[in-house]
Simulated assay, not measured.
Amino acid sequence: MYNSKITGLGYFVPENVVTNDDLKQWMETSDEWIQERTGIQERRWIDPATGETTSTMAVKAAKIAIERAGLTKDDIDFIIFATLSPDMYFPGGGVRVQDMLDMPTVGALDVRNQCSGFIYSMSVADQFIKTGMYKNVLVIGSENHSGGLERSTRGRNVTVIFGDGAGAAVLSRSEEEDKGVLSSHLHSEGKHAKELALEGPSTGRWVPEILAENNPDDVSYYPYMNGQFVFKHAVVRFSEAIVEGLQANNLQKEDIDMLIPHQANLRIAQFIQRKFQLRDDQVYNNIMKYGNTTAASVIIALTEAWEKGKINDGDLVVLAAFGSGFTWGSVIIRW
Rank of each mutant, 00 (worst) to 15 (best):
E28R: 10
V17N: 00
A49I: 10
D22Y: 07
I34K: 12
T19R: 09
G8Y: 00
T54H: 03
E36H: 09
E32A: 15
D21L: 05
T50D: 12
E42F: 08
G70C: 13
D47A: 14
T38C: 02
W33R: 03
E42L: 12
D74R: 02
D74F: 05
T38M: 05
V13I: 05
D47L: 07
A65S: 04
E36P: 12
T38E: 10
P14R: 07
W45P: 12
T53V: 14
E15M: 04
W45M: 09
I64P: 07
A62F: 04
Q25F: 07
R43H: 01
E36K: 05
V18S: 14
A69S: 11
W33G: 15
P48S: 15
M57E: 10
V18I: 14
T56C: 08
G10F: 07
I66H: 11
S30I: 14
M27K: 09
K73Y: 12
R43G: 03
R43Y: 10
G70R: 15
S30N: 05
D47P: 13
F12D: 03
R44Y: 11
D47E: 10
P14V: 03
G51H: 06
I66N: 15
D31Y: 14
V59M: 09
A58S: 12
G8N: 01
D47I: 02
E32K: 15
N20G: 00
E32S: 13
T54E: 14
K63V: 01
E15V: 06
W33P: 06
Q35H: 14
R68G: 01
T19V: 02
K63Q: 09
T29S: 13
P48W: 15
K73I: 03
I40L: 12
D47M: 03
